[in-house]
């Protein structure tokens, strides 16, 4: 794997491969010294043109546990503010000699475009409303941990689908892994077209809540209200938020996921957060293991290299 730009590039076998690797890295993370020298001497730079704390920290933790060096680039403190273009920034960092770039940008397609300007591996850490592949991987990995397999499971994704890269990546990931996906949202928060999406759509959360294995709550961004896409956060919360009454109707063993950061009182009632169904802590923990697996697949596994025959023999036993 050279880049990770979209979950659409992964088939079910690729997912399983990354999950198997994630199992190994979860074991590493549980050690007293949670660090292996697998990527010693490699440098991973996180390029965050858009703010993010948890994704950046998760990637940097992952890189450090693999023994790689990390650098951070954030727009607030960079020469982008002096007018430097993305391309010049990439070429500058490329010239310093890094091995992978983890890119977050507010516009869709920027990580893809960056691959034209550099030879190093690029990971999409979220681009506009387009994709957030590692989030989908860690969500699917978390569900695999709970259910063993996603095949045949019913997943409801609730909230602002239109503006959510998490929803886009997860629809693809969950359906690739055989789950049935239901989108629950008001019509104003659905994308203009759902052609080709392998999903069912409903506006009635109460109609599906007792039949799903997974309830995936998206973050309700407050600015959607000023855009008049929802009448008020209170009304949104009443129709699409998870409160105790709804949580009590969940099936036994059902799981609630949220990509974070949570808006308590909007998509989830404040005290529901502490219920056992919520797997948010697992998601964050698994995020590190999954990102270790991604970085290792790109930089460590050596799959794009062919060794000398002599070395292959020497290495085998």
């Amino acid at each position: 794997m050279k880049h990770l730009l979209s979950v659409a590039d992964l088939d079910a076998d690729d997912f399983e491969e990354l999950f198997r690797l994630s199992d190994s890295f979860a074991e590493v993370s549980a050690r007293r010294i949670p660090k292996v020298p697998a990527l010693r001497g490699r440098t991973v730079v996180s390029l965050f043109f858009e703010d993010s704390t948890r994704t950046r920290l998760s990637f940097e933790t992952a890189a450090k546990r693999l023994g790689a060096d990390t650098m951070t680039f954030s727009v607030a403190s960079s020469s982008m503010r002096k007018g430097e273009s993305v391309r010049d920034t990439i070429e500058t960092i490329d010239a310093m000699g890094v091995d992978a770039m983890v890119v977050r940008h507010g516009s869709a397609g920027v990580p893809q475009r960056i691959t034209d300007w550099t030879d190093v591996s690029v990971v999409n850490a979220g681009d506009g409303w387009h994709e957030h592949p590692t989030q989908a991987l860690l969500d699917a990995y978390t569900l695999r941990g709970r259910f063993g397999s996603l095949a045949g499971r019913r997943v409801a994704i609730v909230g602002d689908i239109a503006h959510s890269r998490v929803a886009r990546s997860n629809v693809v990931a969950f359906s690739t892994l055989g789950a049935e996906v239901i989108l629950v949202a008001p019509a104003t928060l659905l994308p203009p077209s759902l052609d080709g999406w392998p999903v069912k759509v409903t506006e009635d959360l109460d109609g599906v809540i007792d039949s799903v294995d997974v309830l995936y709550l998206l973050r309700m961004q407050r600015e959607r209200m000023t855009e008049h896409l929802v009448p008020s956060l209170r009304e949104y919360s009443r129709r699409f938020g998870l409160d105790h009454a709804r949580a009590d109707r969940l099936r036994d063993g059902a799981v609630v996921l949220h990509p974070g950061p949570m808006n308590r009182g909007v998509e989830i009632a404040g005290d529901v957060v502490d219920r056992a169904e919520l797997a948010v802590v697992d998601q964050v923990r698994n995020g590190v293991a999954v990102r270790m697996a991604v970085l290792w697949s790109m930089l460590g596994a050596g799959t794009d290299l062919v060794a000398e025959p002599d070395e292959q023999q020497g290495a085998q036993q």
């Binding site: 697998a38 693999l66 290792w296 596994a301 290299l305 060794a307």
Partner: peptide, 13 residues
């Protein structure tokens, strides 16, 4: 993850 031939050949745990 501790091998010295990482990158020289496909390595998988």
């Amino acid at each position: 993850f501790y091998r010295d031939d990482i990158g020289l050949r496909p390595v998988l745990p």
